[in-house]
Design a protein around this nucleic acid. Structure first.
Lengths: 336, 336
DNA sequence: ATGAAAGCGCTAACAT
DNA sequence: ATGTTAGCGCTTTCAT
């Protein structure tokens, strides 16, 4: 049958409480005893019963990852974040549950409350755009649920992980400028997402620094999808004075731009340079491959979870900055 | 503080056991009592403590969804399955955990064992291609863990959900035949996946039924990715006698084929008809939109989970067949 | 540094 | 049809 803590205690010749101390890395156990208990656990392949631990200790060893399955960024991005969070949770013997929530639904907060009441997660990982939902953040604080965010908009006391997206956007636009482009267009993502704001700001910053005044017709609204990239590009290509380069706020839209370029007989990169953001698998599979910004999504998920787990252990947590890296590939070239 | 079962019992004027009976939909409670208890639960916003239930009842109310994050189909497909499974679990007040496992790793089975020992899920949902991993299926049976599969290869006594992919593939090829195409190529998915086999078989069946003998050069290997679709298409377009239509085993590869068509100056659908399989969001965003087979992934995830939950309740489970539907769109037209 | 006793919130087994 | 009792496997006091 199941090996219990009591069995380990008997085998190691100590009391159950001592085994419990070892299990939870608590103080007041001599190294010798600790070692003996560890050996017994190992030998018997002891697995603590999560429900028993949770019931007695009043903690669930459970982390919930919240995402928006309605208004969300590309599913591949979320899948990578999820994998990273899972990796960190596994390493610390926490389990993870995923919760799709629709921010736009009226019962958003109620459904969140139900999640907490029903499952008692010890903490929560927030992914964009949920990271910036003010009522939710308020509720989390009210209910005293620790949380960590991936790419939150407000970098106050929030813990989690972030990348300097504005700087990255600026860098990629500077790359286009160095190639001699002057008429550089930008396709914006969903309006109120932090990602959209930062990338637009970086674009503006680079253009201004180069002494170029913003041309409103070159900045068009998209929605992070391939289709919206196609639409946006059609608008741009219908202009009397076309852009020679397009910086789309993510790879899916950039792919749409490249697609539309084909429709208009524009050769990428000869007639038009295109770049994106995210470095999705797709970006490498395109021909020409897409110049983009690498965002280490999986790593970011892992870091966010680690910061949360640190807080759960009573240690401090912080907002970790991760570096970006430009992936210069075939879709960008000297301006025509 | 927390409302406990005992509190509800007191409020309703019954014993704890009776409340427990109501909570678990057990017999031997009069309708009147049941109603009174229900009302008390509602009034007090009672939430049973999952760990206490699990510890005392020796069941976890937990379902684990296994997927391969290495060799997997498109992440959007998995995300949809996941959403469906989650929906069903929620409805039955089960929680769900996700487990990425790498089938190709040596410790695959060991990691599965750890999952069971550490978390005690009441059941497991298998997604392709894990559905067909013989050693895993064996282990599941040995450990007596109920499971349901999404699109399993062997339809023995397996419960879960399936779609007649071979028939669907045949139907879509017949659609091409009706348009007058004779030189129809097929791009195969990852070799040992059930999906690849069925779709290839359907292609062959349709071609044979039309009296066309198979031309080996028209059947090329892909790997379910956009890039592999591009590669495969380049092979096909380099042929002395090009195909006039291509049926790719999924939408990502079909998109790659359309992309490659652009490189070769082939206009879709005028010069070349292209169709895929899955009806991913992408397929509708392309221009022309992709003719494809709609596979109700979210629904399939939900059904698989429901069958599993049915078994967990002690009821029979079965392999539910879901219908496919052809989505005829702009990428297919009369043969040139 | 270690242990004994009590109990977390629920359900199983056995009454009645 | 309903109630009583005794745990489930662990952690929390509080001793020593």
């Amino acid at each position: 049958m199941r090996v219990r803590l009591e069995d380990v205690a008997r085998a190691a010749g100590v009391s159950p409480k001592t085994v419990s101390r070892v299990l939870n890395d608590e103080a007041n156990v001599t190294d010798a005893t600790r070692e003996r208990v560890r050996a017994a656990m190992e030998a018997m392949d002891y697995r603590p019963h999560p429900s028993a631990r949770s019931l007695a200790g009043n903690r669930s060893f459970l982390v919930a990852m919240l995402y928006d399955n309605n208004d969300n960024p590309a599913s591949t991005y979320l899948a990578e974040i999820q994998d990273g969070v899972l990796e960190a949770c596994d390493a610390h013997r926490y389990s993870m549950m995923v919760r799709p929530l629709r921010m736009r639904d009226g019962d958003f907060i109620r459904r969140f409350d139900a999640l907490i009441s029903d499952h008692h997660p010890d903490g929560v990982v927030l992914t964009p755009p949920i990271t910036d939902h003010a009522p939710l953040l308020k509720r989390l604080r009210e209910r005293n649920v620790p949380y960590a965010s991936v790419s939150p908009l407000r970098h106050g006391k929030t813990i989690g992980v972030a990348m300097d997206e504005q700087l990255a956007a600026r860098a990629i636009v500077e790359h286009l400028l160095e190639l001699g482009h002057r008429r550089i267009a930008h396709v914006i993502g969903i309006a109120d997402h932090g990602a959209s704001r930062w990338r637009l700001a970086g674009y503006r910053e680079a253009m201004a620094a180069a002494g170029l005044s913003e041309e409103p017709a070159l900045v068009v609204q998209g929605a992070f999808t391939f289709g919206s990239g196609v639409e946006a590009a059609r608008q741009l290509f219908s202009l009397a004075k076309r852009p020679t380069a397009v910086f789309a706020a993510n790879d899916d839209m950039a792919t749409g731009v490249m697609w539309a370029a084909g429709e208009y007989g524009l050769k990428v990169p000869h007639d038009l340079s295109v770049c994106g953001f995210d470095d999705t698998p797709l970006s490498r599979q395109l021909w020409p491959a897409l110049t983009t910004v690498q965002q280490p999504s999986r790593e970011m998920g892992k870091i966010a979870a680690e910061q949360l787990l640190s807080v759960l252990r009573g240690n401090p947590g912080r907002l970790v900055q991760v570096p970006f890296s430009l992936q210069i590939r075939g879709s960008t070239a000297i301006a025509p």
